[in-house]
Amino acid sequence: MDWSDIIPYLPDLARGFLKSIEIALLSAATALVTALLLTLASATGNAIVRAIVAAYTEIILGLPILVLLYVIYFVLPKFGVRFDETTAGVLTLTLYYSPYLAEAIRGAVAAVPVGQVEAARMIGLGELSILARIVVPQALALMIPSATGILIGLVKDTAILSVISVEEFAYVTKQVVSHTYAPFETWTLVAAVYWVTLALFETLMRGLERRLSRFRPKVEFH
């Protein structure tokens, strides 16, 4: 292994990395909001709305994200709808990951014991404060493990934006490999950066989970 070849390209790689982080943060925010809307739609909407959300979820579960990106970037213009590269990428990540996140939210809300809600009604709490003080705090803690896995997927999938010429981490990496012909050195470095970043993210989420679940009875398995 000869690492010296990639040193001149470190600034390029750093720029690509930051671009990926920027896209990931933006997409994660829009995906979470969309997921919340999807959850609300399937919880409160009428039968037609629920059916649409269900069909959309089924399609996304079977559809490779690259196909979705192609449709948004290359097929929609034929119908007069044209997004620029970054917008098309963020839109793809949002549309693809929101059903997965909605599933995580739904699962977490369902896992809050019904008895607690009933008890809260008995002692006269209003629906809004039941939601704000009993359901949401617990559901947040419960959804963190699955949401973390999904968001890790989202961060890594920012790489697909490279196929529509967004100069993020994977795009720059491919450029560097084509200059240096040092694929193993370059990709090892890139994998290490991904790993450290995502391990940091995982650690933060675990800390958050611990904080949010401090009121829940602890379940131990030995």
């Binding site: 896995g149 994977a170 193993f184």
Partner: peptide, 17 residues
Amino acid sequence: SLMRGTPLFVQLLVVYY
């Protein structure tokens, strides 16, 4: 953490080569 935190592309290369 290793499997979730690194790109599948890299994992494929490591396993194959």
